[in-house]
Amino acid sequence: MGSNKVFEHLLEDLSSFCNPITIDLAGHGQTESPNEQKYYTAQRQVQQLYSIIQRLKFGNLYLYGYSMGGRLAFQLIASHPELFSGVIIESSHCGMVSKSERTERQALDEKRAQKIEQNFEGFIKEWTTLPLFGQTPDEMKLVYNEIMKSQNPKTISASLRRFGAGVMPSVCDKISKLNLPFSLIAGKLDKKYVDRMTEIHKSLNHSNLLVVENAGHRVHADQPEEIIQILKSFVS
C-alpha cells in the first residue's frame, strides 16, 4: 500500500552517486490503474516495467525493490536479467514453493482483500499496528499512513488478489541460476524476513546479505543512512 513517496527522503543523498527513478506500481499511488484484476498479474506487471525500461533506454541500471516491490523485482529479473547491472532487494522473497503454504496465504489474502473493500480505514488501522512496522520513526509512520489513506481500495484489493504472495509464481529456481550481483537487505528485528533473505542468499551465486541493526520490515524508513551507504557501496 505504499508509493514512490516512501523513498523521497532518500533521493537527495542517492542523487550524489546515481540517478534515482521511483515508480508507482499497478494499483498504487498515482498510476492510472483499472479495476479489472487481469492487469495485476505478475506477468502483466513485468510487461509494464519492461515497457518503461525499454522506452526510457536506461544504461547501467540497478533494480531496487522493497517488500511487494521486491517480489515484483524478482519476477522482472527472472524474465529480463540482461537489463540490469545488479539487484537490491529489501525485506522480500522470490515466491512460495509449498502448495499448502500457497493455499493458506491465498485464503488469508482473500480475507484481507474483502476487509479492504468493506472497511479500508479499519484495515489500515490494523495493518499499521503490526509488530514488523513498530520500529518505524513517527515521522515516517505519518508519511506511510497518509499514503495508505490516499489509495484506491478497489485497485489495492485487485493487486492483492492477483499479485499476492500466495498467487504470484515462484521464481526462486530461476534466479538461483543467474550470475547477477545481488544485495539482500533485512532488518534484524524482522526475523521472518531475515530467515527468508538468508535462504535466498544461500541459493545465489553472487550475493551479499546485510542484516541492519535497529530496523524492522521498513529498513529504508527505520535506518535511512544505513540504506544509503549500502546502496552506495553496492553501486560503486
Rank of each mutant, 00 (worst) to 15 (best):
K188N: 12
K5T: 07
P34L: 11
S150M: 10
L130F: 03
G134M: 04
E8C: 07
G27E: 01
D109K: 06
I23Q: 00
R55D: 15
N35R: 12
Q45A: 00
I23F: 06
I52V: 15
M96I: 15
F84C: 03
A221Q: 01
G86A: 05
L25E: 03
A165H: 09
V171M: 06
T129H: 11
A113D: 05
T22C: 15
Q54N: 13
C94W: 11
F74S: 12
Q135E: 13
M96V: 15
L130K: 13
E12N: 13
C94H: 10
V211W: 03
I21G: 01
G95Q: 04
N152V: 04
G29M: 04
L184Q: 05
Q151T: 14
S33A: 10
L189R: 08
F84N: 09
G134D: 01
L63V: 11
R44W: 06
S100L: 15
H93Q: 13
E117L: 15
G69S: 05
K232P: 00
L63Q: 06
F163W: 01
F17E: 07
Q48S: 13
V46F: 01
E226R: 11
H206R: 13
K154G: 00
A107I: 13
F84Y: 08
V219R: 02
I89M: 13
R196L: 15
E199W: 03
N179I: 11
S91G: 15
I185E: 05
S170T: 12
K141F: 01
A42S: 14
A78M: 05
A165K: 06
F123M: 09
E104G: 00
Y144M: 14
V87L: 07
R162D: 08
S16W: 06
Y50K: 13
I230C: 01
R71S: 05
G95N: 06
Q135P: 00
I53Q: 02
K188T: 07
L10C: 03
I175S: 03
L56F: 15
D138N: 10
I116R: 00
V143W: 02
M168A: 12
V167Y: 01
K115S: 12
E121H: 08
I77E: 07
Q229L: 04
T103A: 15
S207V: 04
G164P: 04
Y39G: 01
T103M: 14
E12W: 08
M197E: 10
E110D: 08
A221G: 08
G27M: 02
F58K: 06
S67N: 06
E82G: 00
P34E: 08
K5N: 11
Q151I: 01
Y39F: 15
N205S: 12
E82C: 04
L76P: 04
A215C: 08
D222Y: 02
R44T: 11
Q151H: 11
T31H: 05
L11Q: 09
L56I: 12
G2I: 05
